[in-house]
Design a protein around this nucleic acid. Structure first.
Length: 271
DNA sequence: CCCGATTCCTGTAGGC
DNA sequence: TGCCTACAGGAATCGG
């Protein structure tokens, strides 16, 4: 499930083929994603130059010579770079074809992803307007989390997954960073001290950075641009480890549903 | 406004 | 072996 590290890994994989390219064509086989792909997208993109590929929250932001694209991977979206001879398979919903003849192909079995065309600056698009801070930027601190949480009533796990607070943290990295910080995921976010939030902010940054460095996590669907999996899965402390021993104390890892998402934690190490 | 519940979707895993 | 059901979850939307 693509969270911040998986989006970054995807962007790094696409960039060598996409940045600086001219879009020779777009082939769309399935327009019904999270929102329908607009009918004139092929025509709008034809001949346009790709200036840069960036990230905001879990969106891939493609900067074009004017305007741009917002691409979300949803739950099961991934890109691959293939040759023009490669036949699209089921769930390969669209291709960007560059002037170098490279095909950048999007696959998304569950179709929760999106491809949005922006006439003007994509950073001004409404979809990006409600996002909170970037976790790897300097303004993401324990103080920030502490201040944002004081008046809120939800569990800390739901709080750090709230994209209007901090972006890019999904179910996997929320579970992992709370374990590293020794915080119980069900604890009310307003009842956590400044020093614990300092730890948590640092652990969120550590977990995300470590994952980026090994190409992200592969659980089920996410694959890197070259089709190989990310390797962060081997470093997971709690996610998906229900019943297995905690690496720190040996107690069995517990799973509970918190805010409609399965959550994994050590009941002994996390309080 | 806030927050929990529901919804979209399909591949996979587990039970019988 | 095959069928059925539950489950996975990002994020928009709905309802209390």
């Amino acid at each position: 499930m693509p969270e911040l590290p998986e989006v970054t890994t995807t962007i790094n994989g696409i960039r060598p083929y996409f940045q600086g390219a001219v879009i020779a064509g777009v082939a769309i086989r399935e327009r019904r994603l999270r929102w329908p792909i607009r009918a004139d997208l092929e025509q709008r993109l034809q001949g346009r130059k790709v200036i840069d590929i960036q990230r905001r929250a879990k969106y891939i932001v493609v900067i074009l010579d004017r305007g741009g694209l917002l691409i979300h991977l949803g739950m099961t979206g991934s890109f691959r770079v293939v040759t023009s001879q490669s036949m699209p398979e089921r769930h390969d919903h669209f291709d960007f074809i560059t002037d170098a003849g490279v095909v950048i192909r999007y696959r998304d079995p569950r179709r929760f992803g999106s491809l949005i065309y922006c006439e003007e600056d994509p950073y001004q698009h409404e979809r990006l307007s409600k996002f909170g801070v970037e976790p790897l930027e300097p303004d993401f601190t324990g103080t920030y989390l502490y201040q944002m949480s004081r008046t809120r009533k939800l569990a800390v796990k739901a709080f750090i997954m709230d994209q209007s607070v901090v972006v890019g943290v999904g179910n996997i990295y929320a579970s992992e960073s709370l374990f590293k910080a020794g915080i119980h995921p069900r604890r009310k976010c307003a009842r956590i001290s400044m020093s614990r939030y300092n730890n948590l902010a640092g652990e969120i940054q550590n977990v995300l950075t470590n994952s980026i460095n090994v190409g992200g996590t592969t659980i089920q669907d996410f694959v890197r641009i070259d089709g190989r999996p990310g390797y962060f899965e081997q470093q997971l402390s709690v996610y998906g480890r229900s019943g297995e021993p905690c690496h720190h104390c040996g107690h069995a890892i517990t799973t509970r549903v918190i805010a409609q998402r399965s959550s994994f934690f050590c009941p002994q190490c996390q309080t």
